[in-house]
Simulated assay, not measured.
Amino acid sequence: MSMATLGLNELLTALALPPSTQVQQRVPKKMLAENSAASLADRKLVQDRIEELTWQAVLKPTNVGVAAYVDELRSYLEVAVLVARLRTEAAPSGQVNQQGAKVSASVKRVAELVHRAVPYPTLLVLEDGPQMFASMAHIRWAQREAEKTVLDGDPIIVPVTLAAEPEVFLEAMALSKQPRSQMLALYQGWFDTLSAWQAVELTGQFKPSETPAQAAERRAALHTCKDLDARIAAARSAAAKEKQIARQVALNMEIKGLLAERQRVAQSL
């Protein structure tokens, strides 16, 4: 699989956002501490890991010609594009993706804190040394706190430093390629594109979803594969420690079944 390195400017340029959307305003880290970093550990993470947080652009009905979306659960009046430049860790930990980047626990937590702090659906790009990630998360109104938003599901965070078929991936990220009926659909379009890129780890090729239903099925399959990976790792760990031959055989049979199920699910991507 041919791989090419993508940079921040290349990714931002590929979004092809109108000049009228550009903000390029620095966001004080104090905002994160006040709005989402409730614990001492989170406040320390914000202080130690974030070098700079920039509000790169804002998409509104008036500057992109896409209608706002409002229902009883959420209000998507605009979509934000933010860039977080991070200070690198001495020894980052996390899972290694086929794309060649580690999604460390601290990168995941920083992304979550940013999404929690910003009251708009956000496309967040994180630079962590030579690695780059894109993260998105849906938000909704909090049930018990007026005018407060909470995450609606887990954020998606995808390594994008290395891209297979980079031209195809970058073209798919362009604003003009996203649904334009309303802001929720536009944001979901970017979300689905990142899900399609996430699937490259299993399929070996980048292929955007053709319909919302296909995108939903892909997200479900990716979630299932992640769950199966955890179960396989746990079973392998148990098998390595097991002393009884009969139990080892049973665990190996379980692993074999889980691997077959993972292969079946991956083929649906």
Rank of each mutant, 00 (worst) to 15 (best):
L151S: 05
V118I: 14
T211W: 08
A199T: 04
G257H: 12
L15N: 02
E201P: 03
E217R: 00
V158G: 02
D192G: 03
S39P: 08
A16Q: 15
V64L: 06
V118Q: 02
E34L: 15
L126M: 12
N252E: 14
A68L: 08
V79E: 01
A68S: 14
E210W: 02
A213K: 15
N63A: 03
L151F: 06
R262W: 05
P18S: 13
P92V: 08
E78D: 14
V265K: 01
P130A: 09
A4Q: 09
A221N: 13
R236Y: 09
R109H: 13
V110S: 06
Q143W: 11
D229T: 14
A230P: 00
R49E: 03
L82S: 00
L73Q: 12
T149M: 13
A137E: 00
D71M: 01
W197T: 07
L124Y: 11
M183Q: 02
V249T: 15
V79P: 01
R43K: 11
A172K: 07
Q248M: 08
L194A: 02
G189K: 06
G7F: 07
Q214K: 14
Q99H: 09
E78S: 13
Q267N: 03
L8E: 06
Q205S: 14
K226H: 09
F206N: 00
H115A: 10
A164N: 08
Y69M: 05
V27R: 01
S135A: 11
P28V: 11
V58L: 05
K207T: 10
Q267H: 11
W55R: 07
L73N: 15
K241V: 13
E78N: 11
R85E: 11
T203Q: 11
T13R: 13
K243I: 07
S2T: 00
E72Q: 06
F169R: 09
A199F: 06
C225D: 09
P130N: 07
A230F: 02
A16H: 12
Y187T: 06
T62I: 13
Y76W: 02
